[in-house]
Nucleic acid binder design. Structure first.
Lengths: 345, 345
DNA sequence: TAGAATTGCGCAATCGTTTACGCAAAATTC
DNA sequence: GAATTTTGCGTAAACGATTGCGCAATTCTA
């Protein structure tokens, strides 16, 4: 019972053959006879052999581990992507190793180095909000390690990426509001330095334009993804001489802030003001009213990122692939005026 | 720029010395002079040296990676524990690798094997709901790999563990309800085969007994952690000839089900019926009324589990340590009758 | 049936580090 | 100043698996 590990050499000795034969048998090398292979398999089983992946990785030049870097591992969006990746790569015998950047570029750089040192087979990353230089990512590419960005991608470097179509997400959200009779639609944008937020903003603009609706400057507000900040700017908005009749937010949290402030101040949601969030965080379905939100397909995103990476790993495809997933508008109560909703039934 | 990696041999050659000297210099071996060490460091920097952790791990017998196994990586409790672990082990230069068991014992066994094969330094695990045999865990211990269980622990094997005091959590929750004037308190238990749920149940019983309150058999219901199931059993409960005036739940989700059913059926929460959940899931703070819940200290749990594991790794402590963290009752609106609340102010 | 191709397996180098051992030079002890 | 200890570093053997090369034995080709 003492943890004496068996190696292929032990198996070889027991079978009066050599380690190379055992190795080949174990790896289904066609140059090994069925008979020998079976003997090896049986003996391996008997001796409780378990391969030392370190040794194999060392020889091979990389491990069967995929590195993942996210800002925070405990945010539902990221943890859900991670789950998707894990599920997918497991099928091919890979494991995932998680690093957090805490939205700091220094951590991100360190993480990349650590992962490279750990000889990961490839890296899947959602870059930090701070990240504006890409030398660390280029280093990965220069070493010919597959690299896939997700959600927060970088346009300036030529790498594979998976994201949702943020433009379309915002566009369909705004369109939905308009279909439900809202006309004066304000927009909560995130930090416009980040591409996903720029795209959402563009989607909002396009939808308004396509429906011949004007956008007063005061209707566009940059607000962090935060409940209290959401409340604050909602107060501002509703104090305008021409307050909006709906809010489309780039974040579920600021949308929640909006709903909270509105209810506290005796506005009815959605009858007085409609609200739509972005992200489809689980809490949105438990609110009153339940919140309409754009689902980011996080698990799919993870699965897809994993697939793209594996493709690259297996050499099938070395050119960068940019995948855009379609977001899904999850329609709940916060965006449908009761009268209209009833009429529709 | 082509990913030619520099090894210690290259450094040695450039310095007209040997790999062993370089290795020792890099590892702060005291038998190396300051002068040599500095030369090595400088040259390593110059040549862009990055250590190959695979090789080192192979030689050392284990990697600087901690394996984590959880049922689901995207459940807030687990992702939060993972975050805590990652933050803590990173300080000592370790990384974490994540596996999911999906509550299946076969997956758990596979995961353990995969982690052992990856030569992880140790394993931190929250066992699946199904797990009732522990051979796979014993194997880890037999190979002298540190093993730490968290939250869902196993009493029958002698290993370190970190959990919250579920007894105390439930006890203080029930006590709080009683202090707020509730007397007929029902209990939503989870699956009593799982130790944490047994403990919570015991806490409930003890608190009731200590306050000389009787528990009708019908008040104790085993219900999965699920909103709809919570609704269902709440309906049952409230149809009793002697319905409860409060519900203490082992889960936030079934508690949410209770609140939903109660509101839909014109019961006031908390004035007619008080409700307390367990887990302090983020959504609890966004409900109406906001939900009182027992916080499980997930991030602390992760940090502590990591500390216990590292202690064991560094050989300071080879005997099993069982740590119980104190849960924290987060008091919100669902458990305080308005009259009493005002009086308290 | 001679020559070519294929099959089955052993030899030995290799991946990049770490580390026990040993030895000379320098420093210390008495 | 001889004997001992310490310092500084080189030699070489690991760690456990993979794989190019080569060589017999077998099968196939013509």
């Amino acid at each position: 019972m003492k943890g004496k590990k068996t190696t292929i050499h032990e198996i070889a000795k027991a079978l009066n053959t050599t380690a190379s034969t055992v190795s080949r048998a174990l790896n289904n090398n066609p140059r090994i006879s069925e008979e020998t292979r079976n003997k090896v398999l049986k003996m391996a089983e008997k001796l409780g052999y378990e391969p030392n992946t370190m040794a194999a990785s060392l020889r091979r030049g990389h491990s069967k581990i995929i590195g993942i870097i996210v800002p925070y591992a405990d945010r539902i969006f990221f943890s859900s992507v991670i789950r998707g990746i894990e599920e997918e790569v497991k099928k091919s015998g890979y494991n995932v190793i998680i690093c957090q950047s805490y939205e700091k570029i220094e951590n991100e750089v360190d993480d990349v180095n650590a992962l490279m040192a750990a000889q990961v087979a490839g890296i899947i990353i959602s870059i930090s909000r701070e990240t504006n230089k890409y030398d660390h990512l280029k280093k990965v590419m220069n070493k010919n390690k597959p690299l896939v960005l997700f959600d927060r991608t970088a346009e300036t470097i030529n790498t594979s990426s998976v994201a949702i179509d943020d433009f379309q997400g915002a566009y369909s959200a705004v369109n939905h509001l308009i279909e439900n009779g809202f006309k004066q639609i304000a927009f909560f944008s995130g930090n416009k330095k980040v591409s996903i937020f720029r795209e959402r903003f563009r989607g909002y603009q396009a939808a308004m334009r396509d429906n011949n609706l004007l956008i007063p400057d005061e209707y566009i507000i940059e607000v962090p993804s935060d409940v209290d900040q959401g409340k604050l700017v909602t107060q501002q908005l509703m104090s305008l001489p021409n307050p909006p009749d709906a809010i489309c937010s780039s974040s579920d949290f600021s949308a929640l802030g909006a709903i909270k402030w509105l209810k506290e101040n005796n506005f009815k949601v959605p009858d007085d003001v409609g609200v739509i969030g972005f992200g489809n965080d689980p809490f949105t379905q438990y609110l009153e009213p339940t919140m309409t939100s754009v689902d980011q397909k996080s698990k799919d995103m993870g699965k897809t990122a994993a697939q793209v990476l594996l493709e690259q790993l297996e050499g099938k495809n070395s050119i960068a692939r940019k995948v855009l997933l379609s977001p899904e508008l999850i329609i709940r109560d916060s965006s449908q005026k009761l009268a209209i909703k009833k009429a529709a039934v």
